[in-house]
Amino acid sequence: MNGILSVSTVLNTASAGLIVLGLYIVFTQKNLIKMVIGLDLADTGVNVLLVSTGYIKGNTAPIFSKAGLQVSQMVDPVPQALVLTSIVIGFGVSALALALIIRLYQKTGTLDTSKIRGLKW
């Protein structure tokens, strides 16, 4: 398959789309929870990009699950291990952000950034 839709093209396009979409949401939305959703989308895009760098066409997961499996038939394990870290950090960031938002809502009674004094730009 040497067509225009190779797997790495699809993954790169998807990741770029997710990152741009997520950043657009963060820049334009005023609702804080929507901004966190945008951050999460951009995060997912970065993860997809990282995983796709380790991809090798036609190869399997880097697990020696069958006896005859050769090293040359596997994809790169290092980006996958890095993405595991990245997912956990992304989870921590969004959980902490949501906790902050809950506190902010209790203090100000709104989620709209333009209505919260001291957050304008």
Binding site: G54, Y55, S72, V75, D76
Partner: peptide, 19 residues
């Protein structure tokens, strides 16, 4: 980012770790 799609031309940490 269009990574070489065959394992022959791959010289990386990953190959060393896998072996």
């Amino acid at each position: 980012l269009m990574i070489p799609s065959s394992s022959a031309d791959r010289k990386s940490v990953g190959l060393e770790i896998l072996s």
